[in-house]
Simulated scan of single mutants.
Amino acid sequence: MKKSTMALGAVLVLSSVGAYAQSSVQLSGLADAYVGSMRMAGDSKRISTVGSGGMTTSWFGAKGTEDLGGGLKAGFAFTSFMRLTNGDYGRFKNDMMWSRDANVSLSGGFGSVILGRWMAPNFLPTVLFNPFGDSFAFSPAILHANVPLFNGTNWSGTTQSDTGWGSQIAYSTPDLGGLKGTLQYQFRDGANSGKNFGGNLMYFNGGLGLTAFYERTEMGNPVATTYADGSKRTNWMVGGSYDFTVVKLFATYGQSKNDVSNAKLKTATTGLSVPIGAGKLLAAYAHTRNNLLDATRQTLTVGYDYNLSKRTDLYANVMHDRITDQTSGTSFAVGLRHRF
């Protein structure tokens, strides 16, 4: 912990100096906390809590680019998640210091190449095509994909390779008339024999948005270790959105499969965002069928996100979560999010 604190201090000092020396280096982040009463499907009791990252996981760090001339740029990103509940780094205990970003990049007319830890192929398609974005506490799409339940229900997320991959090389195409694609490969770590690869496509034109991703994984993250059952797992999703100005609609459909257990999880999501006053009314629903458990999970969230300024917003959410043959749960929360 002492070494991590020293490393963090060094990065912040260098980032501050760099910000004066060149405008391409920036220290930024986001702080998000909420107070709520939480109960997920299968929980034995309700928990009242002050939580971190209600609508977006809190983070901070430094990013920058250098113009190399001829349209070529070099870049770096060192960003860390943090928990406002106890001031510790990471999304959870034992998460790595720079688990959000730790990479260098080269970009130009050919697109961009990134080396190091960066987002996984599943991340952007999932967060951009649901109205609650990257809310790991209240977005039904994110909860079903990335957040396992540790309450005896045996319910795991459909995307078990995590939302970020380390030791990877990623290539992203330039914007081709609104279409952009990314290919990613995560190398095995140390003695591990596993590897992960995948990619995604995103298309935006006017009010229309379309996406798809595919992953074939043999390792979990953030510490890259092969799955305990030795399985190879495939995960894919397609989705779309359309902004009618008075309402924006979202929908996705995808599948996750384990070649050892033969578990197959199929997930469909829908959602909408309606501008009202200085904020937006949000609603989203996710339905996942797990053939191995012979069970379904259904999650519905309704909320309102009110903008106090361009950088600060207040939100209130109500969520109902249920799984076949398990006790259902309802959660309530009010929170504050600030970008800096």
Rank of each mutant, 00 (worst) to 15 (best):
T5E: 15
A7M: 15
A10P: 01
V11W: 01
G18W: 00
A19Q: 14
A19R: 06
Q22P: 06
S24C: 07
A31Y: 02
A31C: 10
D32E: 05
S44N: 14
I47Y: 03
S48E: 15
S48K: 14
S48P: 10
V50S: 15
V50K: 12
S52Q: 10
M55N: 12
T56E: 04
T57R: 00
W59I: 09
G61P: 04
A62G: 13
G64N: 12
T65R: 02
G69I: 06
A74T: 13
A74V: 10
F76P: 02
F81E: 08
L84A: 05
F92H: 12
D95N: 07
S99T: 10
V104Y: 07
G108N: 05
G109P: 00
F110R: 06
F110E: 10
G111H: 03
S112E: 13
G116C: 08
A120F: 00
A120D: 02
F123D: 04
P125G: 09
P125L: 10
F129E: 01
D134Q: 14
S135Y: 03
F136S: 09
I142C: 04
L143C: 03
L149W: 03
F150A: 15
G152Y: 05
T153G: 01
W155F: 13
S156Y: 15
T158Y: 04
T159K: 05
S161M: 11
G164M: 12
G164F: 12
G166F: 07
Q168K: 13
I169H: 04
A170C: 03
S172I: 02
T173I: 13
D175Y: 11
L179N: 01
L179A: 14
K180S: 15
G181A: 15
T182S: 15
Q184R: 11
Y185V: 14
Q186V: 01
A191Y: 12
N192C: 09
S193P: 05
K195V: 06
G199Y: 11
N200A: 10
G207D: 06
G207E: 04
G207R: 02
L210V: 07
E215I: 07
R216F: 04
E218N: 08
M219H: 03
P222Y: 01
T225G: 10
A228F: 08
G230T: 06
T234M: 11
V238D: 02
V238F: 11
Y242W: 09
Y242D: 12
T245W: 03
T245D: 14
V246H: 11
L249F: 13
Y253A: 13
G254R: 00
G254N: 02
S256H: 06
N258S: 10
T267S: 12
L272R: 07
S273A: 14
P275V: 10
P275Q: 02
I276D: 04
I276G: 04
G279V: 11
G279Y: 07
K280Q: 10
A284T: 02
Y285E: 09
R289Y: 12
N291H: 08
N291T: 08
N291E: 07
L293D: 02
A295W: 06
S309Q: 09
S309H: 08
R311D: 09
R311Q: 13
Y315K: 01
N317H: 13
D321Q: 03
S328L: 08
L336S: 03
L336P: 01
R337I: 03
R337S: 06
H338M: 09
F340S: 11
F340G: 11
